[in-house]
Design a protein around this nucleic acid. Structure first.
Length: 264
DNA sequence: GTAAATGTTCGGGC
DNA sequence: AGCCCGAACATTTA
């Protein structure tokens, strides 16, 4: 489920624990979400610490406990975060639960494509610092985007939009939305976009990211009326502009929906 | 029973 | 070395 705006929404779902002291941690150590992590160390480092802050960058989240415990979360395909009142008993897919005196913060992920990271140190972990600016931020300039496109000239543009090293936070539905709003055919090779299309792509990318954050990040509301979003889930969807039946195919390994009239 | 699902990561080929 | 593709990961839902 989670792309840029949904990730920001879920990050906020743990806010009720901010400033409070952790009582204990419950986790499922043998699940895939903890790959590469020493879960005993993680649980011990977080226990008794104060939940000091949280951040989101692209599809990654970072949570700080005490002075030097950092927990990173990625929601994968099916992850989500929520707060539960006590008493609370974790269910089958609640792989990571942080208990406070009155609430529990829960990370659930049925498919386990998500991931929990753990780092210790005074400053933010290295992997976090390497995440590039998301399209809604000022640092995502047209030049930054164009330079990134130039490094992936043989990829279909749809696949390029999915690369987190250049479009941090953009996922499958956002990529389709961006290309539809920009009027660009998803199979077009990245290196074949004209200067005009590149400029339009940049505008649409920023627009989709910003509007998605406005509508989804605080209330999990629907994206604006008239967006492809509302049509792309059902086979039988039509273009919001003139009702042509949408096309559907696999591009860059993912289901891709587009309007054959608007996007060539 | 089968296919598909809002995401990464790895290995192999070029 | 860098780029690109396809398979793999684990589970639920249509």
């Amino acid at each position: 489920m989670p792309e840029l705006a949904e990730v920001e929404y879920y990050r906020r779902q743990w806010d009720p624990g901010l400033g409070k002291r952790v009582a204990r941690v419950e986790l499922h150590p043998d699940t895939r979400v903890f790959r590469g992590v020493d879960t005993r160390k993680l649980a011990a480092a977080v226990r008794d610490q104060r939940f000091g802050g949280s951040w989101a960058r692209g599809k990654q989240m970072l949570f700080r406990f005490g002075k030097e415990a950092w927990v990173g979360l990625h929601l994968g395909m099916t992850g989500n975060l929520r707060t539960e009142a006590l008493p609370f008993t974790p269910e089958k897919h609640d792989h990571f639960v942080v208990f406070f005196p009155k609430v529990a913060l829960v990370f659930r992920d049925a498919r386990q494509f998500g991931r929990v990271r753990f780092d210790e140190g005074e400053s933010e972990p290295e992997w976090w610092r390497r995440i590039p600016a998301s399209p809604h931020e000022a640092a995502f300039t047209k030049k930054v985007m164009a330079d990134f496109l130039a490094r992936h000239r043989r990829l279909p543009i749809k696949a390029t939009l999915l690369l987190q090293t250049g479009f941090a936070g953009v996922g499958n539905w956002m990529a389709d939305e961006i290309l539809w709003q920009a009027g660009i055919y998803p199979m077009r090779l990245t290196g074949e976009l004209t200067a005009r299309e590149t400029a339009q792509l940049w505008r649409s990318t920023r627009n989709v990211c910003r509007k998605a954050l406005e509508t989804i990040a605080t209330s999990f509301g629907d994206p604006p009326k008239g967006w492809l979003f509302h049509e792309r889930w059902s086979r039988k969807g039509v273009c919001p502009k003139h009702k042509r039946v949408l096309k559907c195919a696999t591009v860059g390994g993912r289901t891709t929906v587009w309007c054959p009239r608007c996007q060539r």
